[in-house]
């Protein structure tokens, strides 16, 4: 059964939200989802841009009170 994992990378300067997402996806199964929380506005565009390059799906991206949430589904 597919799982959804949350990574709260708000305020994480290093390695940062996208590196955390990449690391989490390596351990995930196909169909699993990772919800990355980031206080860096750039993540809202960087993460979807990387997913488009690699072929993972962005399920949703939303802005909350001071942070962005991007949910990515592992596609391969």
């Amino acid at each position: 059964m597919a799982e959804r994992q949350k990574i709260d990378a708000r305020g994480a300067f290093c390695p940062g939200p996208l590196m955390e997402l990449i690391a989490a996806l390596k351990l995930a199964s196909i169909g699993d989802e990772v919800d990355v929380w980031s206080s860096d506005k750039g993540s809202a565009s960087d993460i979807p841009a990387w997913c488009a390059k690699v072929g993972h799906s962005v399920v949703e991206a939303s802005e909350h009170d001071g942070y962005w949430s991007v949910v990515v589904r592992k596609a391969k």
């Binding site: 300067f13 390695p15 940062g16 996208l18 590196m19 990449i22 960087d46 841009a49 990387w50």
Partner: peptide, 10 residues
């Protein structure tokens, strides 16, 4: 490098 710059720290 895995992300869009040369190091994780901007």
């Amino acid at each position: 490098y895995p992300i869009g710059r040369l190091h994780a720290l901007e």
